[in-house]
């Protein structure tokens, strides 16, 4: 593995660890979601840098869109956006 890739991967991993600590230390659920978004960016970048292959683009996009959809659903349900009867 070349050096530039390794340094970029280390930067992504360290930022992921920092975001994880901030997610745990924050109390309110809606304030946790931006930190979770930072974690999702860092993981999604490091997934591609671990194995630079054309199919890795699909994996990174699938992980990022899935994580975003999950955050969207959690925030909408917490705010009472899904009106459910019965």
């Amino acid at each position: 593995m070349e050096v530039a890739l390794l340094i970029a991967l280390s930067v992504c991993a360290i930022i992921a660890a920092y975001a994880a600590v901030r997610v745990v230390l924050e109390k309110r659920p809606l304030r946790k979601l931006p930190y979770l978004n930072v974690l999702s960016f860092a993981i999604s970048g490091s997934l591609l840098l671990i194995l630079p292959h054309p199919l890795s683009i699909v994996v990174a996009v699938a992980y990022f869109v899935g994580s975003t959809l999950e955050s969207n659903a959690i925030a909408s349900t917490y705010a009472g956006g899904i009106q459910k009867d019965g």
């Binding site: 890739l5 340094i7 992504c12 930072v38 960016f41 860092a42």
Partner: peptide, 17 residues
Amino acid sequence: ASDFVAGMVIAILTIQG
């Protein structure tokens, strides 16, 4: 090009993190 992946992660950290 991998520098820009790390750069974008730093850039989103300054806004959201």
